[in-house]
Structures are given as structure tokens and as C-alpha cells.
Design a protein around this nucleic acid. Sequence first.
DNA 1: CCGCGAGGCGAACGACCGTTAGTATCGCGT
DNA 2: ACGCGATACTAACGGTCGTTCGCCTCGCGG
Lengths: 195, 195
Amino acid sequence: MDRATEIRKTAISLFAEQGYRGTSMKDIASALNMRAPSLYNHLESKQELLREVVMGTITRLRADFDAATSEASDPVDAVRRATAVHVLLHARHPDETRIGNREIPSIDEPVRTEYLRQRAEYSNAWQSLVQTGIDAGAFSVPSPKFAVFAILEMGIGVANWYRPDGELSDVEIGAYFGELALQMLGRHDEGFGGK
Amino acid sequence: MDRATEIRKTAISLFAEQGYRGTSMKDIASALNMRAPSLYNHLESKQELLREVVMGTITRLRADFDAATSEASDPVDAVRRATAVHVLLHARHPDETRIGNREIPSIDEPVRTEYLRQRAEYSNAWQSLVQTGIDAGAFSVPSPKFAVFAILEMGIGVANWYRPDGELSDVEIGAYFGELALQMLGRHDEGFGGK
DNA sequence: CCGCGAGGCGAACGACCGTTAGTATCGCGT
DNA sequence: ACGCGATACTAACGGTCGTTCGCCTCGCGG
């Protein structure tokens, strides 16, 4: 692993632990037995590190969503798969996703606006997916908009408590939360706790 | 409203919007047409403002939980009430709860450790509540621990999207999420009347 | 063996931060 | 009318920050 990659990994870890503004370039350098000015041989600015993390993560999240839903055979399967990949990304990359959720005020313009736009598009894609399911008669839910918010937020929260050595693996939690999501949407066909 | 209260309200608003470290004493003072040093006639330090917010919020959350569950007649009712007050606090105090969830790295020791301890106790109280329901045969859930995490996180998320002028009021969302929580726990008896 | 680029280093810069000290002003109780 | 407490102000201090600059060393290709 080359220096530039080491620096980025260390920065992500420290940003997640201490916050972006609570982490100095000296902190990052010290963790690699370097001095702060030496970092600038491998990057342009501290802000660049943050930008790479948050934009990379939202891009990855949207790509996973698109892949998952395009593989699905019907709306129920699509929601199950989309929830699973949403949860999986948060379980496997808790540092990156926490930074993306907590450090929004630390992102300089114009990147912050673009980042928020992409997040809104991700949320909108979910709303459309569920609406398609409702139109197809697959779901029965009093307030689909709020149900989707609930599904997304419970997946985001996985980054705060998931531990690889816990009683369920990340894949199992993804499957479990996929079923929870379908329950919350009032899935009509049979299955786990369905009506 | 006296000056001390005005300062605290302004600080909460700015901390929520820009982050604790992204907000300077000058920012707070400017919003009140003051100079930064004048703030010190009304407070001891910037950190004191943060401490008051986060400790006040977790104390309020635990008190509401205790009140809600002690009024309940059975585990199903207790979970419904506990979810409702959890959601209500996050809907009505989004700034304070967001600060409590995002600014953990900004809290100086020893307050941070004490704050995290109180959060853990709140989470533990929820786990116990649900376990009581399972023992009483009211719930059937494959992984109660993770179901509780999901319920708590989906309520925390309300602070990120709830708007007072939305299609549902905060009380309605609290009731709705209470039902979602019971679904997620695989409630055995159905409806509002209990068994 | 030489040259050169990559990458590390100390020094330093300008900006900003939280906070303190000392001073002025205003309004109220007496 | 007077004094005093509350509260605002300016000036300033010590510290930290991100970043730039110039230098030095090291290893490798020719």
C-alpha cells in the first residue's frame, strides 16, 4: 500500500473517531510517524481528503442501489435487495458513512451542495421504488414517505453499533433488515411476520 | 427571555447548523449583535454550552422513557409509548438531539464518558423492556437486540427529516412509529385495545 | 559515478481561536 | 442625586491551525 493510500486510510479513521475539525494534519502525520508538511507531497489539502470520502461513499451507495434494484424481479425483491446493500455498505464502511452523515457542515462549498443533491437523489430513488411497489399492489402502507425515511435511517444507524464479532454477520443483518423493511411497508405476499 | 437564555438558544441553533467546532464564540455573539468577550458575562466557557445541551437532552430522554413505561399497562403498550416519546423528543428538539448524536467527539472528558454511559443505560433500559415483553409472550422476534437498535435509530433519524409543516404532525409520527416498532418486534396481540 | 526526482524535514507565515483583563456605560434602588 | 451591580466594549495573549518554502537525503537509471 503506497503512502497516499496509507494517509487516506489513516485520515478516515481519525475523522470518524475525532471529527474532521477535531483532527489536525499533525494528528494524521503523527499516526504515520511523519511531520505534517510531508503530507502535502501526497495530497492537495485537508479538505480534499474529506471530499474524497463523502463523494466516494455516496457514489458507491447509489451504484449499489442501482445494481441491486436492476437485478430484482419484482418490487418486493427490489426492496429486499436495496435494503440489504444499504445496510451492508454501512456495516462494512462505518467510518466512511459516519463521516458522510456527521461532517456535512465541514464540507466546503460547492461540494456540500453537490453532496446533498446526490443524497436527495438517492432518497428520491427509494421513494420511487416504493411507489412503484404500491402501484403494483405489492405494499400497503399508510405513509410510504415516512416509512422510507425510517428504513433508510435504521440502516444508517447500523454504522453506529455493528461489530464484526457480534452474533450476526453483516450479511445476516442485511437480510434481517430487508425483512423488517418489507414488514414496515405492509408487504402483501407471504413471509416473515407478514399479514 | 434573558440574555443567558438567548445565548444558549442561539448557540444550539448554530452548533446544529455548523457544528460545535465550526461555530466560534464570535459567530454566536454576532448573531446577537454582541462581541465575543461579552458572552463571558453569562457563561463560563464554550464547552459549558455543549455540556448543558447534551446532558440536558439525555436526561430528558431518560426521564420521558421512565414516565412513559411506568404509565403503561403491558409490554405492548409500554413499547408503543416509549417509541412515541422517543420520536417526539427528536421531532420537537432536532437541534439538541442532532448535537447529541454528532458532536460526541467534541465533548471534553470527563463529560463525554459520563454522557456515553447514560446513553448506554438508555439503550439497556430498552433492551430490558423488550426482553420483558418476550418473556411475557407478547413479542416474537428473531433478534431483539438488533430490533431495538433499529427502533432507536429510526427514531433518532426523525430529527433529520421531520418538518412541522409536513403532512403528519409530530404526535402522528410518534404513533405511527410506535406501530412500526411493534410490527418489528412481531407483536402477538393486534390492535389498540390490547388482548 | 553522477544526476535527478521523490519525499521527508524544520522554520515560518498569516489567520483564527477561546479566553482574560481592564475599562466604560447604563439603569435601578436608596 | 448617587453609588453600585450588571453588562457591554476594546485590546491583547498564548495557542493551534492549514499551508508554503527551501533544503537535504536517499535510491535508482544511465
